[in-house]
Every structure is written in structure tokens, then in C-alpha cells.
């Protein structure tokens, strides 16, 4: 029965035009970034390497390769994708309430827990497909347009170089982690959706929560750094970047296949999973207790 429910939810998602707006928006943004970097890529790399241009010969053309562009694209768009996820997940229950179909499906011989889990699973599938779409455009597209080379990742205080043969698995892991992060957003939007009768409220609420926590995170003031940030999901949602931070040996050379402080990634993954479970439990409890009056 659950599989049937999931199929129904996916069918409904992919029959709605708004679903494809997200896919279209992602494709357009990626193509714009790729075009910009194709034309002004050197300036972009220079921005990161300017302070070192006197000390080192910077191989700008090599740095500006498909992997680098993909990381840049992900860096630019993954922060905005929660909005696209919220558009779908925030509409899951409240959208049905607004449409008047919630009373029809809730009066069917399926439990409300099953309904929530099916809707959550469908949101997760949507997130995964969105990321696969992103991978096709951002990774494969950039590889085709810019070619492949070693990957240089610029952090605020250091830069990490990875051999080209040590990169693809990192993208795969980063996409999986991003899926987990965006699923957290989906679970939160779904939770808000349970307690609302219109679609806009949960979508706006989700985006507001993400913005507020991102600002708190970026403020970097001790009062938040020590209290909120270690547990804020926006802190851990950036975990996908952690797969591009490579570890080094005592002589300073990077270790192929390594990740700097993998324990933190595990911790972030567990915290995000914890949030998903928490949001789901609240959703299930809220939905089971809810009098459907719409």
C-alpha cells in the first residue's frame, strides 16, 4: 500500500507545472554560471588567488576546469535550492487542504502516518531527482564545457588541491550529503505544511527559518558560535563541502581519498538525520491529531 501511495504522490508532483519550474530554474542558473565562467573565469579565479599572484605562478586555465566550475555552481545554487524544495514539500499537506482534496484522501483507508511518510518519501525522491538533474548540468555539463583537471577548492584560510582521479567520488558523496541536507528542509517544510491550510505559509516559514539560521551562522559572533551554530541545521547542511576538504600527511602532501576530519561529517550527517526524524515525528503526531476541517 505504501508503494502505491508513494507512486500516487510522485504522480501528483510530476503532473504539476510548478515542479518543472524548479528543474528549469536550476538548468538556467547553471547555464548562466557556466557561461559567465567561460567568459570571465580567469577574473573569478583571480579573485581567490590575488594575494598569492606575486609568490606563485597561478595556473588559471587549469584551475578553471569542469570540477572547479561544478563546485562553484553548487556553492552558488545549493544555498537557494531550499526554496525550490520548500515549494514542493511545503505544499504537500497544506496544498491539499487548500485544494480541498485533503478531506478526500484522509477519508480513505490509509493511515495518516502512511500519508505523511508517503509524502515525505515523495519529497525525498523529488530532492534526489533535483540533485541528479543538478549533477547532470553542473557536473557533466561543466566537464564537457571546461574539461577535467585537478580540483582546487578555495577556503577562507587555505586552498585544497585534489588530483582529478580523486574527485568524482567526492562529488558523489557531496551530492548524497546535499540530498540529506535538502531532505531536512523537505521534512521541515512538510512539518509546517501539516499545521497550515494554505501553501504560502509553510513555504515562507521554511525559507525564513533557513535565512535566519544562515544569518546567525554567518554573523560568527561567539554568543551564537558556541550555542546555536553547533546545533543549527544550516551549519551542518554545508557538510557537502567537507568532502572537498582533503587531509594531508606530516610532510604537507595531501592524502588521496582522504577527507579532513571525517568525524565532523559523520556528526553533521547524524544531526541532520536527527532533525529529519524530529520533524517527521512532529508531522506525524500533528497530522494524526489534526481535525480536518478544510
Amino acid at each position: 500500500m505504501f508503494i502505491d501511495l508513494l507512486k500516487i504522490e510522485l504522480f501528483k508532483i510530476f503532473k504539476r507545472p510548478r515542479t518543472f519550474i524548479a528543474f528549469g530554474a536550476i538548468a538556467v542558473i547553471i547555464l548562466l554560471v557556466q557561461f559567465a565562467l567561460k567568459v570571465n573565469g580567469k577574473d573569478f579565479v583571480q579573485f581567490y588567488t590575488d594575494s598569492q599572484a606575486d609568490t606563485f605562478d597561478i595556473p588559471y586555465e587549469k584551475i578553471l576546469n569542469g570540477y572547479f566550475v561544478c563546485v562553484a555552481v553548487l556553492h552558488m545554487i545549493l544555498i537557494h535550492v531550499p526554496l525550490l524544495v520548500a515549494l514542493i514539500a511545503g505544499d504537500m499537506i497544506s496544498g491539499e487542504a487548500g485544494l480541498g482534496t485533503l478531506r478526500l484522501i484522509a477519508g480513505k483507508p490509509v493511515t495518516r502516518t502512511q500519508l505523511i511518510l508517503a509524502k515525505f518519501s515523495a519529497s525525498t525522491v523529488y530532492v534526489i531527482l533535483l540533485l541528479v538533474w543538478m549533477a547532470v548540468f553542473a557536473l557533466l555539463g561543466s566537464m564537457l564545457i571546461f574539461g577535467t583537471e585537478d580540483l582546487v577548492v578555495f577556503r577562507e584560510t587555505d586552498m585544497h588541491i585534489m588530483k582529478s582521479g580523486d574527485v568524482l567520488w567526492r562529488f558523489f558523496a557531496a551530492f548524497v550529503f546535499a540530498a540529506l541536507a535538502l531532505t531536512t528542509i523537505a521534512a521541515m517544510a512538510l512539518m509546517f505544511s501539516v499545521f497550515s491550510e494554505n501553501s504560502l505559509g509553510p513555504i515562507v516559514a521554511t525559507v525564513c527559518v533557513v535565512i535566519v539560521f544562515t544569518i546567525v551562522q554567518q554573523l560568527r559572533v561567539p554568543v551564537f558560535e558556541e550555542t546555536v551554530n553547533p546545533w543549527s541545521f544550516t551549519t551542518h547542511m554545508l557538510g557537502w563541502k567537507g568532502f572537498f576538504y582533503v587531509d594531508k600527511n606530516a610532510e604537507g602532501a595531501t592524502i588521496a581519498g582522504s577527507v579532513e576530519n571525517p568525524g565532523s561529517l559523520v556528526r553533521s550527517g547524524l544531526i541532520l538525520t536527527g532533525y529529519i526524524v524530529l520533524f517527521l515525528l512532529i508531522s506525524i503526531r500533528g497530522f494524526n491529531k489534526k481535525d480536518i476541517l478544510s
Binding site: 500500500m1 502505491d4 501511495l5 507512486k7 500516487i8 504522480f11 501528483k12 503532473k15 504539476r16 507545472p17 485544494l99 480541498g100 482534496t101 478526500l104 484522501i105 480513505k108 483507508p109 490509509v110
Partner: peptide, 21 residues
Amino acid sequence: PDLYKYLTAKENLRIFSRLSG
């Protein structure tokens, strides 16, 4: 009777029959 407006009559019935088991 609010149904899924963006679906056809057939698609709506298919969904509701499946939901009814």
C-alpha cells in the same frame, strides 16, 4: 467535490481507486 484540478477525470479516478485499496 474538490478533486485534483491539474489531473484528468481518469487520472483522478485512478488515484482515488488506489487510495481506496
